[in-house]
């Protein structure tokens, strides 16, 4: 046992606790799951970002990563499967002073929600999307999804998957995201820094976070546990900032290219809308109030 009394009068609190709904801990995530690590990085990024956290809104869809909204002590919305992005779009457009972060999983954002996320990126809506990619549907028991690497065993690909997988950074790059990065749950410092960057950057920003799913992905594919996966991330990740996103596709247990791939500027949705209406309507244009609630 640790004896702390002789060292300090009162041990400090875990610095992330004030930003979590600690009355809901322990969370539902399995031992060795990386979602908690990513959330840990997110809360630290929020603290360091110096953003006004009363104006932060976290929106999640459905799934294991979709539970993030329920654990953060901010205005938080746990929506329907795949629809976190359009909910966030409405939230942001009706009150642009909000900092809106979508925190969800790969199946939620890119299978059932795939149409929404490409259009939000195209419009350059000022929302920040953090996608925890654990390579399958975890909450429902480990079914294959659009990011599952070919040949992986899942409950719906019992003989090994054969569908090609999405390269998420490439997709988001092509759709128009102004910031695209990929890190793994091993890269806690880089991930935290990237999260701070997107909190400060206007426009549609996207971070893919690769995460172990020891219970469903690693176990069924005989790839060890969460710690083995973290070691794999450590050994096989190569940092290549600015890598062409067409070259960062993943395969089962191969090399992982991580880094910040895209960081560019494009006018954001509301800016474009206002400029167009002002130009066309002249004196008749009435700018929307700071919040549509006013």
């Amino acid at each position: 046992m640790i004896e702390t009394e002789d060292l300090v009068e009162a041990p400090p609190q875990n610095p992330v606790e004030p930003y979590l709904r600690t009355d809901r801990l322990p969370h539902i995530w399995c031992p060795g799951c990386g979602i908690g690590t990513s959330l840990n990085c997110f809360v630290r990024a929020l603290i360091e970002s110096k953003e006004d956290l009363d104006r932060l809104a976290v929106v999640s869809g459905i799934g294991c990563s979709g539970r993030v909204a329920g654990y953060v002590a901010f205005d938080s919305f746990h929506t329907t499967h795949g629809r976190a992005v359009p909910f966030a779009t409405g939230l942001k457009l009706a009150n642009p002073a909000l900092k809106v972060v979508v925190y969800s999983g790969d199946g939620d954002l890119f299978a059932i929600g795939g149409n929404h996320i490409i259009h939000a990126a195209r419009r350059n809506v000022d929302i920040k999307v953090i996608c925890v990619n654990n390579f399958l549907y975890a909450m429902t028991g480990g079914q294959s999804g659009p990011t599952t690497p070919p040949s992986s065993i899942t409950t719906t690909s019992p003989y090994g998957g054969f569908e090609p997988a999405f390269n998420l950074p490439h997709l988001m790059d092509a759709a128009g995201a102004v910031y695209v990065a990929r890190w793994t749950t091993f890269h806690v410092r880089q991930l935290t820094r990237a999260m701070i960057e997107i909190l400060h950057k206007p426009g549609f920003c996207f971070i893919e976070v690769l995460s172990p799913c020891p219970t469903l992905y690693e176990r069924r594919n005989k790839l060890g546990d969460g710690l083995d996966t973290m070691k794999y991330y450590k050994e096989k990740s190569k940092i290549r900032h600015g890598a062409p996103t067409s070259e960062v596709a993943l395969d089962k247990r191969g090399e992982i290219i991580v880094g910040k791939f895209v960081d560019r500027n494009r006018p954001e949705y509301l800016e474009l809308m206002r400029a167009q209406h002002r130009a066309q309507l002249g004196d008749r244009f009435v700018e929307a109030p700071a919040c549509l609630c006013d």
């Binding site: 060292l7 300090v8 009162a10 041990p11 400090p12 875990n14 610095p15 992330v16 606790e17 979590l20 801990l25 322990p26 969370h27 995530w29 060795g32 799951c33 990386g34 979602i35 908690g36 690590t37 959330l39 840990n40 990085c41 630290r44 749950t185 806690v188 410092r189 935290t192």
Partner: peptide, 20 residues
Amino acid sequence: CGMFCPDFAIFGWKLRNGKA
């Protein structure tokens, strides 16, 4: 350790002259 922990179960802190 605190950054890696998925369960918010551990954290490190600096000491200066034995004080947090």
